[in-house]
Nucleic acid binder design. Structure first.
Lengths: 184, 184
DNA sequence: CAGTGAAGTTAGTGACCACTAACTAACCAA
DNA sequence: TTGGTTAGTTAGTGGTCACTAACTTCACTG
């Protein structure tokens, strides 16, 4: 297999494994095992663990952008938003996007370059959402806000009903799951 | 100093240090240094590194709930929401809440107990927001969604204008910062 | 068939890390 | 004074980790 193909496989494996354990919590040995290659060989494919993580970030955003573009298809306005929302929920269910995305935000807190890359790629994503749907700024804001909330809720295994009932379903959940002060 | 006081200090230090480096990326030695105590002594105060992290999670939610309660004060309805929003933005600027919160979501991805605690405490928070403000479910949803978005944007150093201009300011930012495809 | 370059390996190395064992120092009550 | 409790220490230990050095294997080519 060519080095380039191996690099591709490695980035995929890295997204999975970094997504599970985070940057610090994932060893290069774990990633190498998933690729099916010896651990020192990773350092021929990438100069360092950190370089692999950065490559994974770019790939993660590439995938997300492609998913949104594909979901929007020829649709415009609210229809495009709805289609992209549905697609995003599929990605969350798929688990890989979600996990790596959250790990990336955590890693950004102590790494200026990650922060810079995240900032730039988010700007691109945001602009793309506006251009694909043609919706006004406040609608994009609402869309992305709810997306970020769903990230957290999904990570915490909170059950929710997508769509217009979302708010109501979360209210019900909070009533049922919150610790009762008067449980005596 | 009493062991109980030391435990309090240690939890504060842990929130700071875990917030910066994450659970796996923060050594107990780092935390001990911040407390001003020898590293093995941490293991008299807490049975394990993980137990300290769990204690930090609870403290983080306690602080957040108290901040929201305090900000709402005697206000109701939209006024309460606005006050709590302003207070939350102060917390984000303070940096400690934000960082630990994001690290906690990341840590939840690979730890069932953290997920369980996060789920329960979020339910309590959500319910509290509804009861404090008296606003309908959809307004709470909007409030919390934007909060989660601000978490991410703040972590990535994205500049934004709070309030009704938020959507517009982010649109401007995306136009200015997104990579131009036609930069040739 | 010799030689070269690319894909991959095994064997290590120094640093760090969570946690333990065993000791000390100060206070306080009988 | 003594004996116990509490707050704290220093010195280590086994394991893990990112990364390196040096070797192998093999397809291709002149």
């Amino acid at each position: 297999m060519s080095a380039e193909e191996r690099r591709e496989e490695t980035i995929r494996a890295a997204i999975c494994e970094f997504g599970r354990g985070g940057y610090e919590g994932t060893s290069t040995a774990t990633i190498a095992k998933r690729v099916g290659v010896s651990q020192p060989y990773l350092f021929r494919l990438f100069p360092s663990k950190r370089a692999l993580f950065l490559a994974a970030i770019d790939r993660c955003f590439d995938d997300l952008e492609e998913s949104m573009r594909e979901a929007a298809g020829g649709r415009y306005g609210n229809e495009a938003i709805v289609a992209m929302g549905a697609r995003y929920r599929e990605l969350l269910a798929g688990d890989v996007q979600l996990k790596f995305q959250l790990q990336l935000y955590a890693a950004a807190l102590d790494d200026e370059e990650i922060r810079r890359i995240g900032n730039t790629r988010w700007a691109g994503l945001w602009r793309m959402l506006g251009e694909l749907s043609g919706e006004p700024a406040d609608e994009i804001l609402r869309f992305v806000s709810v997306g970020m909330l769903l990230n957290v809720l999904t990570a915490l295994d909170v059950p929710y009903t997508p769509g217009p009932k979302l708010g109501r379903s979360l209210q019900d959940w909070s009533r049922d799951s919150a610790p009762r002060p008067d449980s005596s």
